[in-house]
Design a protein around this nucleic acid. Sequence first.
DNA 1: TACAAATTTTAGACTAAGTCCAATATTATA
DNA 2: TATAATATTGGACTTAGTCTAAAATTTGTA
Lengths: 141, 141
Amino acid sequence: MNAEAIKKSLQDGGLRCTPQRYAVMAFLMEHTSHPTAAEIFKAVNRSDPRCSRATTYNNLRDLVQAGLVREVAVEGRAARFDANDMPHHHFICDRCGKVEDLDWYDVPRPASGVLGKRVLRECEIIFRGLCARCAPRHASR
Amino acid sequence: MNAEAIKKSLQDGGLRCTPQRYAVMAFLMEHTSHPTAAEIFKAVNRSDPRCSRATTYNNLRDLVQAGLVREVAVEGRAARFDANDMPHHHFICDRCGKVEDLDWYDVPRPASGVLGKRVLRECEIIFRGLCARCAPRHASR
DNA sequence: TACAAATTTTAGACTAAGTCCAATATTATA
DNA sequence: TATAATATTGGACTTAGTCTAAAATTTGTA
């Protein structure tokens, strides 16, 4: 993982590069499984106990605001975070809550533009169903 | 609002028609503004104090499971509920968190089908931006 | 209508997820 | 290196939602 690239992207987002913020960002870039805030805190705090829970939440908020990280809300479950900077959509498993990235080009892209009197910033397609682990195998039986 | 129709849809969903459950369903059909569980509880409990908080949550869970109500997760905010049974997508305001329905035909519909090894149940497009109230008016100034 | 079985309701304690605070520390800039 | 702006901290707090087990209601059957 390129440390300089992380530093630069923090700066480009108008954020200072602190050890805690760097650690949160680096963790998200290395772990593309959409961890929850609690998971991120546990991992980052374990390898560097200087990072507190409040700081983890503060940094996630800042990274999302700066557009470097995406937050995915899942019904009845904790929010999940994602540093994948390529445009993409998500698949959420009904059973285990797992969030998977779908390549933008895997799915048709809805037209962007104005929606009535609303100012559109982004659109995301959320697919729901059962992931490969949760789907009943040999379902034909 | 057709009381018999509500009764029938509860039964079709395999749910008994209790006064509390009926009240939650009726409230959602009359209020299409995507209320939160707390708002639903307050309103239903005010007009009939027999309905407790736990019951409101239980019934929302049951109605969602039965497919009569949709739940919309919003980042950093309480879940919102929606009894609109027509296929549709949502617009979520970044600033105030308001959820608005978008007619299915207002937006292109992504192709359905299998996504890799995943079993697809539904897909929803979530549009984000600023609603008519929150968008800066006369923005050219 | 009366009974039994299944389902639903309840108050309130509890948990999980996340925010807030104000004192302290760190970072970037001049 | 001094300074101003920003970030970090532990821990109390809030908000959203779940759990429990006893009591009540609903529904099907006789």
